[in-house]
Simulated scan of single mutants.
Amino acid sequence: MVKHSENIIVGVSIGDMNGIGPEVILKTFEDTRMLETCTPVIFANAKIVSFLKKTYQLNANINGIDKIEQLVQGKINVLNVWKEGVNLDYGKLDDNVGKYAIKSFQAATKALKEGKVDVLVTAPINKYNIQSEEYTFAGHTDYLNEQLEGNALMFMIHEDIKVGLITDHVPLNEVNKYITKELIEKKIATINQTLISDFRINKPRIAVLGINPHCGDNGVIGNEDTTVVKPTLESLFKKGIQVFGPFAADSFFGSGQHCKYDAIVAMYHDQGLIPFKTLSFGEGVNYTGGLNKIRTSPDHGTGYDIAGKNIANENSFREAVFSAIDIFKNRIEYNELTNNPLKISSNKE
């Protein structure tokens, strides 16, 4: 199996097959130019993927395999994770279909962990129908954090804006109890290193949003921003991380302040994702930073309302593939530079 940056092997989990995941996957790789960029491996079942290809009337070159070593460049490889058929009902929430989504994801993660694929791109799952005695994680990120090395970070990325989260899938009424000096330090340090190693930004500038409206208005609307957030940022700045804030979240994006920074850190899920998706929807990518392996995903969900209608837009999934490839290449370059630093020598005339 070839393991060069010009032939990056992209593992793909099929996601919820009653949703738009399979459609956007196949539409992405139907473009043969994508197959010149990477070698995809979908973790699913070749017969089902062929059926889905016919459903969406796509001209995709499917190659069924039973082990990674059989993959063929220039084709859409489908690794048979299961043999049996699965009944699909587009747009419907189905526990059985959720079970196969997790089978695909776990098999793809195992291959990523073992180095049999270079990067992982995950199609959307439904957080409700994936739950079982064997799988109790809220989504992809928590499972990856357990299986891989490092500290997982939900990092939404786009050419024009990058948003990291201090807390992600946490109920709003519990956010404050999670936000501590230690968590802020850990997340911002991860974001800073991610920008350096994965996005080739030498000295990142990071903006941090406040927890409360108007950052608490000097304690009138809460004091967490002055007692927890601000001193933590000051400490990080003294350590050499260019971090600024806290900023009032309500006016930060509308005034264009986000354009001055390489990344924005939000305190909770919707504080960061509402502006991110407003500014980048359809082209944004969910990147799990902070881990020793690379995983990306489109910025949308299962799309049950349009599933099976052959109208889903594959742009975000395609961007997820491109982002995974770019980050993989950036990491190779970063590791080469940091492991073998260039020696500066003067030329004598």
Results as ranks from 00 to 15, higher is better:
254 G>A: 12
257 Q>I: 13
283 E>P: 01
278 T>G: 03
275 P>C: 07
281 F>G: 00
249 A>M: 12
252 F>Q: 10
253 F>I: 14
290 G>Y: 03
280 S>M: 06
254 G>C: 07
272 G>Y: 07
279 L>Y: 13
278 T>W: 09
264 I>P: 09
261 Y>A: 05
262 D>G: 03
249 A>N: 10
248 A>C: 14
283 E>M: 06
263 A>C: 08
283 E>V: 02
259 C>G: 00
249 A>Q: 09
260 K>W: 07
253 F>P: 14
278 T>Q: 10
271 Q>S: 08
295 R>I: 07
271 Q>W: 12
268 Y>V: 13
281 F>P: 04
271 Q>Y: 11
275 P>H: 08
278 T>Y: 15
261 Y>D: 04
269 H>N: 08
285 V>Y: 01
284 G>T: 02
274 I>L: 14
280 S>K: 06
258 H>L: 09
274 I>D: 01
257 Q>L: 15
290 G>H: 04
277 K>D: 03
288 T>L: 05
262 D>P: 08
254 G>Y: 09
290 G>I: 07
279 L>H: 05
281 F>D: 00
252 F>M: 11
290 G>K: 06
261 Y>F: 15
269 H>A: 07
262 D>S: 05
294 I>V: 12
285 V>D: 00
275 P>N: 08
264 I>Q: 05
251 S>Y: 11
260 K>D: 13
280 S>F: 01
281 F>H: 02
249 A>F: 13
274 I>V: 15
263 A>T: 07
294 I>E: 00
258 H>D: 08
282 G>M: 04
285 V>K: 02
249 A>R: 12
290 G>M: 05
260 K>A: 12
261 Y>M: 11
271 Q>N: 09
287 Y>W: 08
267 M>K: 11
251 S>M: 14
255 S>Q: 14
264 I>C: 10
294 I>W: 05
280 S>L: 01
278 T>A: 12
296 T>V: 03
261 Y>S: 06
276 F>G: 03
248 A>R: 11
255 S>V: 10
276 F>A: 03
285 V>Q: 00
278 T>H: 13
255 S>W: 10
287 Y>F: 15
291 L>A: 00
271 Q>G: 08
295 R>V: 06
279 L>A: 05
265 V>Q: 07
256 G>C: 08
283 E>L: 04
297 S>Q: 02
252 F>I: 13
250 D>H: 14
280 S>N: 14
277 K>I: 06
254 G>I: 14
264 I>S: 00
274 I>W: 06
283 E>D: 08
260 K>S: 11
269 H>L: 10
256 G>F: 11
261 Y>G: 06
248 A>K: 13
281 F>W: 07
295 R>T: 04
276 F>S: 03
251 S>Q: 13
290 G>T: 06
260 K>H: 14
291 L>V: 05
259 C>Q: 15
291 L>C: 02
272 G>K: 09
270 D>M: 12
252 F>E: 09
251 S>E: 10
280 S>P: 01
284 G>R: 03
286 N>W: 04
261 Y>P: 12
262 D>A: 05
259 C>S: 12
265 V>W: 10
288 T>G: 00
264 I>N: 02
260 K>M: 12
263 A>S: 11
255 S>R: 15
250 D>L: 15
291 L>S: 00
263 A>W: 09
294 I>N: 00
297 S>H: 02
259 C>W: 08
297 S>Y: 02
